[in-house]
Design a protein around this nucleic acid. Structure first.
Lengths: 191, 191, 191, 191
DNA sequence: GATGAATGAGCGTTCATTCAT
DNA sequence: CATGAATGAACGCTCATTCAT
């Protein structure tokens, strides 16, 4: 097994186990076992468990970003662009429930708070398309003139919730329902 | 210290510490210490940590419910009723940040999932005002004809997010901003 | 409830619970609960748990002694006397399984060792009939000339074992089987 | 310290402490301390305390069985065979007082009851020599026609008792005394 | 570099005993 | 006298991390 393979296996195993059992239900030894490496080996790639989790989130972000941006046309109207992005996001979540569960846990933890702080105030890049879209939408008076943070909450809060309800089996999403949900989010932010 | 005082102290300490550090960051011994009681004392009032957490949530629910329903007029138009409730909810959250953080942790945990399931499918009462309002709104074609679960997500997801951002200091809410946020939620669910 | 009643209730409850669950499976609070008294009340009658257990054993001994000696005729031949006593002992055990279980636990514990030491070397009275019978039996060359301790083991060891097997359901004793077992014990000690 | 050494140290420490203080008087931390290992180390070798105790008993059994059967001649008369086995058993006990005390505790506990049940009714092998000897002895009318369980009690009850009295210092056994005690047990079971 | 046995601090929980009422 | 709420030391057990091999 090459070096990168090992790292990948660790990442994969950690994602699976944390998604399934939460941070505290996924001991390092279990992750190592699932990854097929020694427990000590994880520490060659990650300084400690916290760092591993943060790193893992970063990789998820990087992996998902292109998927969401795929087919994104910056020239289309704001509404269309928003719907494109949010639909892609929803599809990403329900198509990758492990990723979703991990991200949800991450946001709802001290890690998530720090991360959000960095995103909003720091120099960290990430949801830049969204940010740009929102800023443009506000300035062009297509969207409500609310703090951008609030627009994020209006746009993504329901998506996260609906994705969770689907993954947990409370509802069964189909393309029509996704479209109507995303549309409703647009109603929330549009002028 | 009278008996009820002790229980209250435990509840208060648990709420504070869990809100601040999460379930796993709030050991029973630390809760006992903060409450000024012996470690074993907690177990006179709660069978175990899980039961304590569930109970704590239930008390929060009971405490908040009247606050939210206060001044609620079932005869007013749906829009007004919705805005009343959601505004009250937001005020409750930002006025009781400890409660908010605890509730957030609770929902994002196995407890929360079970609770949500009971609420949605079971006979458990609780968010009945909301449920009734939504069902009525749908049938009277004032609100979008979406599964009620999705309406919940559209209505509360943003509120939770915005409340958190305020509590964490990412934004500073005032009455105007709250009003406009709640209004935006209404836009999401209204027809 | 009069004073003696309380003490009796405690003794009864302790016997039941210890017989059923062992010393460590019978917390003082549970004993108090079963006895219908407060937890602290036990300590008015017994200095601590150890003392209570020792005392309890002593009472059992006192209670059983007359039952076993009942109908004992010191003039009869040794064989007949031995068989009378051992049969009575067996009947006592299988007729009072709680007593048996408690006694068994008691013997098999630090308490039991100390008690046995006192009995053999000290001034404590108790199994005097047996002791006299054995000493007489030896001196009259009816029984084997073995240390009296060994005679005790030969005479009672099997009785305890068979009683336990009956109580645990490994065998079903009837009068004939008891008679033959006791007879076998006699064979072990007789010359 | 090699891997097997650690396990051996744990086993030795557990045997010593349990023999001396009983199951409840031998906390895992104390066993670890005596063994010179960390508390968690025990759990690398045994799933939990119960498993450790059961395993320990099994190892004792395995260790003792060859000692007891050594020199056993299945062709000799029943009497001689019985005396050989029971004498060997007695020697094993008084030569390994720690083993004896542990075994005694084990039998007098829920573990022991379950074990006995398996032995008597199940397919578990173990005291097979004894069982065979007894069954043969009964069918050839050399021994009393009693349930085999009772024969076990008559044969071993006294041995256990006498061994304990020796270990506790109530008597001092020598070869002659052992011989006469074993002989007495034979008298109990022989026709 | 890779391993996994070893560690021990820390967890949730129990229970004999005390003492204010 | 009787109570039972309160205690806190002690228990069995877990797991992030280290380090000898």
């Amino acid at each position: 097994m090459a070096k990168l393979d090992k790292r990948d296996e660790i990442v994969r195993a950690a994602l699976e186990l944390i998604a399934e059992h939460g941070f505290h239900g996924a001991p390092m030894a279990m992750i190592a076992g699932r990854a097929g490496v020694g427990a000590g080996t994880i520490y060659r790639y990650f300084e400690n468990k916290d760092v591993m989790i943060t790193e893992l989130f970063r990789e998820l972000e990087e992996r998902s970003y292109p998927l969401i941006k795929e087919g994104y046309a910056p020239d289309k109207p704001h509404r269309e662009r928003f719907i494109h992005l949010n639909t892609a996001l929803m599809h990403y979540f329900i198509g990758n429930p492990l990723d979703y569960r991990f991200i949800e846990q991450f946001f709802n933890s001290p890690y998530g708070v720090a991360h959000r702080r960095d995103k909003l105030f720091g120099t960290k890049e990430g949801c830049d398309v969204f940010k740009e879209l929102f800023e443009e939408g506000i300035s062009q008076q297509v969207m409500k003139d609310l703090p951008i943070v609030i627009l994020f909450d209006l746009a993504f809060g329901p998506i996260l919730g609906v994705a969770r309800d689907h993954i947990l089996g409370f509802i069964v999403l189909d393309d029509a329902l996704i479209a109507r949900t995303v549309e409703a989010c647009w109603d929330a932010i549009k002028r």
